[in-house]
């Protein structure tokens, strides 16, 4: 018989790239997710930025302007919309339609399927953050992040933590629409602690304490530091790292193919 055992069994690495290319095609052919993560924060920034009174420093914001207070929250908005709403959707939809089940009969490892989604969403988030920085700088004369390293470190750790949570949603949700609902719920809760409705400077001490332990609370603190020129505090970065590790472990453990 002319059968040879597949060399070194398992799967060729080119499989990852063909799969990634298809996932990118799908992301562009169904751009709803890109709009939520990219367009919405930019629209919000333009709305905030074009009102001059939002630029006036005010005593009740601790000498900051409303724009100062909300700029880090807009960054966080982009990161969390992409990781909680955009990222889980394809995976849960694949599960719903039996696409994952069929993939699970091929040599393709689970981790590769997750990695492809991670790569796409991290790239989208990087573009979103870059656009927000450029627009705030050139559009509204806001200084670019004073501590660039701190800003990049915060972005990466925050993305790691939030994408890990996005994967937990993707691992659990049986259908695309349930992934959307779960993701949106987690988004609303975490955005509360990020200060979307009640900025952190106004939060009572106990809320601030809780906020510090949530991934988005820690992210807002870190972005605020980096924008102002300081390296983000260690506790905030540690919080993000802890969420990233715990979320990743949980997602890989509970991920189901069908």
């Amino acid at each position: 018989m002319s059968h040879q055992r597949a060399a070194g069994s398992g799967i060729p690495t080119r499989a990852f790239w063909t799969m990634l290319r298809n996932e990118i095609r799908l992301a562009f052919r169904n751009p709803r997710g890109l709009i939520v993560g990219l367009v919405l924060p930019i629209v919000l920034m333009v709305v905030f930025g074009s009102r001059t009174k939002f630029h006036t420093p005010q005593a009740r914001y601790g000498g900051l302007s409303l724009f100062d207070v909300y700029l880090p929250i807009l960054y966080v908005f982009a990161v969390s919309a992409i990781s909680l709403i955009n990222l889980p959707n394809p995976l849960a939809t694949y599960r719903e339609h039996g696409i994952l089940r069929r993939l699970s009969t091929t040599p393709l490892p689970t981790t590769w399927v997750l990695l492809a989604q991670l790569a796409i969403n991290v790239a989208v988030a990087a573009v979103a953050l870059l656009l927000l920085v450029l627009i705030s700088h050139f559009g509204f004369g806001f200084a670019s992040p004073q501590n660039a390293v701190g800003f990049v470190v915060t972005s990466l750790l925050s993305l790691a933590a939030m994408c890990a949570l996005g994967f937990v949603v993707a691992a659990l949700a049986p259908t695309g629409s349930s992934a959307y609902l779960i993701g949106a719920f987690v988004f609303v809760v975490l955005m509360f602690f990020a200060g979307l409705w009640l900025p952190r400077i106004w939060m009572p001490a106990f809320l601030l304490d809780i906020s510090n332990y949530t991934p988005l609370g820690a992210t807002v603190q870190s972005f605020t530091s980096a924008l102002g020129g300081a390296f983000p505090p260690g506790w905030a970065l540690l919080t993000l790292a802890a969420w990233a590790v715990a979320g990743t472990l949980a997602a890989v453990r509970i991920f189901r193919w069908d």
Binding site: Q4, A6, A7, G8, I11, P12, R14, A15, W17, T18, M19, N22, R25, L26, R29, N30, Y94, H97, G98, I99, R101, R102, T105, T106, P107, L108
Partner: peptide, 28 residues
Amino acid sequence: GVQLQQSAFPDRLKVSEIEEMYRSFYHN
């Protein structure tokens, strides 16, 4: 190789794109 009773592929991929991807999963 497995063909399941209810298997599906992403709606917005072309036949050739799905074929290329599945081809790439195997060494030979």
